Structure formats: C-alpha cells, structure tokens
Computed example of a mutant assay.
Amino acid sequence: MEKSSSKKNFDGKQKYQPNAVIHKIVKEVPIFSQTSTLKSIKGRLLGEKQYKNFDYIYLSDEKGKLSGVLSFKEFMDNSESSKAENVMNKKPISVSPDTDQEQVAHIALKHGIKSVPVVEDGKLLGVVTSDKMVSILNRSLQEDILHFAGIHKSHLEFENTMKVPLNKAVMHRLPWLLVGLIGIIIAAAFINLFEATLEKYIILAFFVPAIVYMASALGTQHQTLFIRDLTILGKELKFSHYFFRQTLIAFIIGVVISVLVFFAVTLFWHERFIAIVISVSMFATLMITSFTSLFVTLIIYKLGQDPAFGSGPFATVISDMTSIAVYMLMAVWLL
C-alpha cells in the first residue's frame, strides 16, 4: 500500500488535510465475500442499483478486510461457478485515506487502473473513481499553469476570487499599493528639489517620463522572467550566475537604448551635450534598475512571500524612485 502522511490532530479528534483522498471517495461500490461464486455475485449485482462504480468488484475475507479485486472483464470471462477468490487479483493497488489526491491520480496512471480503493486497517472505506481522478488532475493542471505564472499554490487558497472574503482580498493587495503611493509622493518631492535645473534645461523634463518608463519596462521584464525561473527551476537556479547573466543582458540593452536616445536627441533637438547627459543617465538608470528589480524580487522570495504579489508594485516604485534619482543626480553632475 502506498501511503503519505497528511493526518493531524485537531481538538482531540483525528482530521484529514483538505487535499487528502478521503474527501474524494465513493462509498457505494460492489464488495462481496471472496468465497462467493461469480453467479451469486452476478445475481446480487442485477438486483441492486445503488452502486456508483462498476469498474471493479471488491472482495473481502472473513475478517471483512479487502483481500482482492476483480475487474468487470475478468468477471465476464470466467465461469459463473468459479469462486471469486480463485480468479481475483490478490494484490490490489490501494492507498490510505490520508494520501494526497494528486498522488492517487498518479498511482492510477502508473498502474493503468480505473479506480483506486482507499483502505484503512485493511478495511475498504471507499473508492476513488475515474471521474474523481479526472477532476483531481484538472485541478492540478490549473494550479500548475498558475504556478508557472508565479502564482503559487499557497496563494490559491487565499486568492480564489469566488470564495475569499472581500476584506481579505483587499488587504492582500492594498498594503503593497500604499507602499507604491508613498514612493510616488517621495519621488515627486525629490523632483521638486531640481526645479531650477529643469527650468534651465526644459528638455530634461521632457525625458523624465521616458526614463521612468524604460527603467520600469526593463525592470518588469526582469521580474517576470525571474519569477518564472524561480517557479520552474526552484533550487536548481544558481543566483550568482543568474544575476551575472541578467546584468550582462541589461548592459547590452542599456548600450543600445542609450545610443538610440543620443541620436534621437541630437537629431530633433540639436543639443549634443544634453544628448550625452540624457543617454548616459538612461544607461545608468537601466543598469541600476535591473539590479534593484532582481534584488527586490529575491528578497521577497527569501522572506517566504509570493513575489508575484509584492514584486510588482513594490519593485516598480523602487525602480521609479531610483530612475528619477539617478537621472536628476547625473544631470546635475554632468551639467
């Protein structure tokens, strides 16, 4: 018997985890004494209509414990005078009631069986039927797809939008956005410190949105890919090598974008020195933002939080504040 440990005690009573297979069993299954003849079993099957599963016939010994299983094909292929114990499979695949539901589905696929009996202390509690296993696998597939997107199973329990209470749904998202709001206010106040420089070189003000957007876009790319790689690779991901590779990619992207900005400013505004200031600032901003976006996502992940929730708004405001600060400071320093 294949087992897993997901039982726990609660209020002095033995309870099962929500993912335990006991919650998926069908109890109305045909079970007969192993000493019965196939003819007597057939007569009882024809006379009783309550069974919800007819893939297998289950047999028990004199102690009432599961002793074998008989498929419907085997039942029809053998003589009616045969005793069930002589034609049954005496080593049926079974699981304990605390076995994980997905594990049961995989056991069924591995052994090529349509239903899996759930047994405790030798007694048959019920059966996980094929339709139940299809439902389990469908749910597992949905979770895996969301997992690849960076939404982990632990959060599915909280973020089921059809079940989660409204106040919890709000509180899971609002704190991160409030952090972003505070960051925006700080960024606005920081820009105000450079009012004189912006008035003197009005073209610098034109490129504030461009600097912020490009930094945010590159940072979002890094975050999305990092979350995906964390989800798929897990512990196989080597952070030092990963950070070096992403920094190298950011360096190449930064050079290309900065050169394009330089030529654009020179062509349309005919301000070569200002073009140098903006392009150098753009490059520095992209490099620093690339690092901060990866670093913030990693910190949230290390703290045991889902980076899909926090890295978006939190890393974005860090990126915006950093890009504005670098841009303004670089402009003042170079000018």
Rank of each mutant, 00 (worst) to 15 (best):
V326F: 01
E74K: 13
E195G: 00
L124G: 08
L225C: 02
I93D: 07
K7C: 06
K39F: 13
T224Y: 06
S281I: 02
H152P: 00
I288D: 03
G183V: 03
I278H: 07
S33G: 07
V280W: 00
T285Q: 07
Q101V: 05
V208H: 04
S154R: 09
I186P: 01
I31R: 03
H155D: 14
K13N: 13
D11W: 02
I249W: 00
V164L: 03
T316A: 09
S60F: 09
F75G: 06
V26F: 03
I324G: 02
G12W: 06
I257Y: 12
V29W: 04
K238N: 13
A210G: 01
F273P: 02
M1V: 14
K3Q: 13
V118W: 06
G304K: 11
V277P: 12
D229W: 09
K302F: 09
G112E: 10
H155M: 13
V170L: 15
T129P: 03
L109S: 07
F295M: 15
I276F: 15
G126F: 03
I252V: 15
L193N: 12
L204E: 06
S33H: 08
Q142V: 09
V179A: 00
T292E: 10
S82I: 01
E159R: 06
Q14M: 05
G310I: 01
L146P: 10
Y301T: 06
F243W: 04
L286E: 08
G122N: 12
V277T: 14
V118A: 07
Y213T: 06
I151D: 06
M330F: 07
T99Y: 09
I186W: 03
A284Y: 00
E236M: 04
L124P: 09
D131E: 00
S154C: 03
T231M: 13
V127P: 10
F263S: 09
H270S: 10
I252W: 03
T292F: 14
G68M: 11
F268N: 10
P209K: 04
W269E: 14
E271G: 01
I93E: 11
K110S: 15
V259W: 07
E120Q: 12
S258T: 10
F10Q: 14
V29C: 04
H23S: 10
D98I: 00
F262Q: 00
F243E: 03
V170G: 11
F263G: 01
I227N: 04
F309K: 10
V255Q: 05
Q101F: 02
V118H: 09
N19Y: 04
E102V: 14
S36F: 15
A284C: 15
H147W: 13
K27W: 05
L218N: 05
T37N: 06
K3W: 08
R139D: 14
K132D: 11
F226V: 08
M328Y: 05
Y56N: 14
Q246P: 05
F148N: 11
G122F: 10
G219W: 05
F262K: 00
F295V: 12
L294T: 11
S293C: 08
S216F: 02
V118C: 11
V21W: 05
S36R: 12
I211V: 14
A284E: 03
F268M: 09
I252K: 04
K235G: 02
P92K: 09
K110H: 14
K49M: 12
V128Q: 07
K15V: 15
